[in-house]
Simulated assay, not measured.
Amino acid sequence: MADSGETDDPAPSVAARDDLAGVVDLFGSVTRAELSRALSELAFKRRTEVDDAAIAAAIDVGVAEYAIVPTPRSAVSVDGDPVDPTDPDDDSTGSDRDPTFLAVGPAAFPQLPEGAEDLPHILDVPDREVDREALSDAVLDRLSADAIDAINAGDTERLETLADVTYDIEAWAPVDAEPIRERILAEIDG
């Protein structure tokens, strides 16, 4: 987990992304607001300070690196029932009004950070199930769109990251990312 300590690298470490994935995995799926609260609670338990900007940055990096992935609301259920889109107590839209949840992504090796085992007792977050087929389709679509954006921007570093993700996603779900990978590698080798 990234903290407010001095560092030359503002991006969280790989372990931090895996810690994020571990927290998400603890509940099956969480909203961005729920993950932010969980990270704040962990910081409090450790008697450290983490500001909201550091938490948001850690989540953004986790999403960008495919350690945690946006999950369509339609792919999330609680006790077999779909998440109610009209629930007034549902904060899944959070401050950014993003109507998605977050789930463990293909580039993660989820690990529970110290003290996280108490989070289900601290937070009022239900255990959620995620439809893996719907999630893998959404992640593959996002990977394709991200690849096109990186190609159009000429962002070789991003393309290299996405090339790695094409291998990760094939190990993570029964999808074929080879066409995306070939396009990325052709652009990198260009």
Rank of each mutant, 00 (worst) to 15 (best):
122 I>R: 03
153 A>N: 14
62 G>I: 02
33 A>S: 11
146 D>S: 11
159 L>K: 04
155 D>M: 12
106 P>E: 06
144 S>T: 15
117 E>C: 11
145 A>Y: 07
170 E>Q: 12
152 N>Y: 12
89 D>I: 09
152 N>W: 06
165 V>A: 04
51 D>G: 14
62 G>W: 00
68 I>A: 08
136 S>W: 03
104 V>G: 02
112 L>R: 09
104 V>T: 12
59 I>H: 01
37 R>Y: 11
74 S>H: 10
71 T>N: 03
153 A>Y: 13
112 L>G: 08
67 A>V: 10
36 S>N: 11
85 P>F: 09
123 L>K: 00
152 N>E: 15
167 Y>V: 13
50 V>A: 00
163 A>I: 06
80 G>L: 02
139 V>D: 01
154 G>M: 10
132 R>F: 04
46 R>T: 04
33 A>D: 15
156 T>M: 09
43 A>S: 04
155 D>S: 10
88 P>A: 10
154 G>W: 06
113 P>D: 06
64 A>E: 14
140 L>M: 08
121 H>W: 08
31 T>G: 13
78 V>K: 09
84 D>K: 05
47 R>M: 07
142 R>C: 02
89 D>F: 15
57 A>V: 11
71 T>H: 00
122 I>P: 00
149 D>S: 15
128 R>H: 06
94 G>V: 05
56 A>Q: 05
59 I>K: 03
141 D>M: 07
88 P>M: 02
26 L>G: 04
120 P>G: 03
125 V>M: 04
121 H>P: 01
37 R>I: 07
96 D>L: 13
142 R>H: 09
95 S>M: 14
106 P>T: 05
27 F>G: 00
122 I>S: 04
143 L>G: 01
75 A>L: 02
170 E>I: 07
142 R>K: 12
28 G>T: 10
80 G>W: 03
148 I>E: 15
63 V>A: 10
152 N>R: 13
133 E>G: 12
130 V>Y: 00
58 A>M: 04
74 S>R: 11
140 L>Y: 02
66 Y>A: 02
31 T>M: 00
165 V>S: 05
57 A>M: 14
59 I>P: 01
43 A>V: 00
31 T>L: 01
168 D>Q: 04
105 G>W: 01
153 A>T: 07
86 T>K: 06
113 P>V: 01
35 L>K: 04
70 P>A: 13
108 A>Y: 00
102 L>G: 05
169 I>L: 12
168 D>K: 09
133 E>K: 14
134 A>M: 15
48 T>F: 09
53 A>E: 12
165 V>I: 12
61 V>I: 15
157 E>M: 08
170 E>A: 12
115 G>N: 10
26 L>W: 05
83 V>N: 02
163 A>W: 01
149 D>Q: 06
168 D>V: 07
69 V>A: 11
